[in-house]
Write a protein that binds this DNA or RNA. Sequence first.
DNA 1: GATAGAAGTTGACGCTGCGTCAACCTCAAG
DNA 2: CTTGAGGTTGACGCAGCGTCAACTTCTATC
Lengths: 246, 246
Amino acid sequence: MEWSIQDIARLAGTTSRTLRHYDQLGLLVPSRVGGNGYRYYDEECLVRLQRILLLRQLGLGLPAIAEVLDGQRDTVAALRTHLALLEQERDRIARQIASVRTTLRKTEEGEPLMAEEVLDGFDHTRYEQEVTERWGREAYERGDRWWRSLSDAEKKAFQQQHLDIARDYGRAHQAGAHVDSDEVQDIVRRHVDWLSVTMNPTKEYVIGLGEMYVADPRYTANYDRHGEGVAAFVRDAMKVYAERNL
Amino acid sequence: MEWSIQDIARLAGTTSRTLRHYDQLGLLVPSRVGGNGYRYYDEECLVRLQRILLLRQLGLGLPAIAEVLDGQRDTVAALRTHLALLEQERDRIARQIASVRTTLRKTEEGEPLMAEEVLDGFDHTRYEQEVTERWGREAYERGDRWWRSLSDAEKKAFQQQHLDIARDYGRAHQAGAHVDSDEVQDIVRRHVDWLSVTMNPTKEYVIGLGEMYVADPRYTANYDRHGEGVAAFVRDAMKVYAERNL
DNA sequence: GATAGAAGTTGACGCTGCGTCAACCTCAAG
DNA sequence: CTTGAGGTTGACGCAGCGTCAACTTCTATC
């Protein structure tokens, strides 16, 4: 089945002019253009538009959206990450709701307000960095062509490398090593080398990735299984490495 | 307590330049400006900023936000409506989550997609109209100076007028009257006259208000207590009236 | 076939809400 | 005094549209 430009513009709450603009940018190319120049969109386009709309809603600019979409072509995996982001957004709104309730209660009771409480949940400016890092990671682990080119054994070995790195971080942390020690920095070097197979990590990327390991419970769990506080330890070690070497 | 411009810019995820811009527009005026020209914000400013950020998040332009904020000065009432809007937004995201789950399931099972399902929850372009209508209504029912100037008896009489109108809509609907009949149009005229006490309803406003009666369950309930389908009946009657008379 | 209105096209322009930068001042700590 | 953090105003430009004009195509009706 396919839809006209106005069909989906209406449903998406946008305009045909915007969709043509997206076409011009190569962001959402219609599945077919009729002999009359009319654009038609199929289901694949629909899903792609859904992804675009979500990322716009999260505040990403169009070039970043294009990067994210090009970085992950496996629709099912993308939709799963989609879900995770929406759930995060739902949680943020829940925090806003709690914040307004607190403000309301304190206003009625004449209690002093705390700025952090009043504005909790309203800062969503880090989404672009967070999303591109997350999608970046998804891309090279699951959807990237390079990844797909690996045999199962190669994939296993690559993943094992990361498990080894995580284990070694844990050991060093447990042994009380300093984040800037040679031992720990060597683990970070292996980690960054591991990242470098499919990309060229910038200093900012490495620092941001370390922060993401702490901020996102799922990544934190990857490291903290080796001991409580390992994720933060990794973040700090990566920061040191990035500042010294990248 | 008070905060510097950077204190709250950071918490709100915005810039001091934006806050100065808001000051220039008169949208968020600092509670104090030091002898050195530095801006400081108190708790009242914090709450006002919270309201601004929410309305921005909902897509309202700054002039509309100013209008909304000026229309409702009772902080507690405003925060309650705030909550209602956030809950609505949470529900919209829940619909998005359901939509992505549906897309995911259908993609995995190879089922055809329906455009309405895929894009459900992604259209949030009507917020400006909806919010201003809702706040407009709140303003004149609760927070408006005119409303406050009425005695309790006068308030009761004014509200009774609306109850009478709703009852009469119900009776006409039950009697099978047509939305464009003289009888029903006379009820609409009384309704529009009732609205006209504190404002000058435009054609678009009246049509949009009728649509809101159907779209928002709380308003629908006001009318449908007189019989199922009365809200839609009122909407249609108002549309006919607006197109003929406004 | 003619007509009218809906549905689409491209291209140009302008708008809104910022973000960035320059040039400057003020404050605080050493 | 010096330096860097924290603030100011003003100017400019940007991104992502929305609107409009001028046009073509399609569809339904007579």
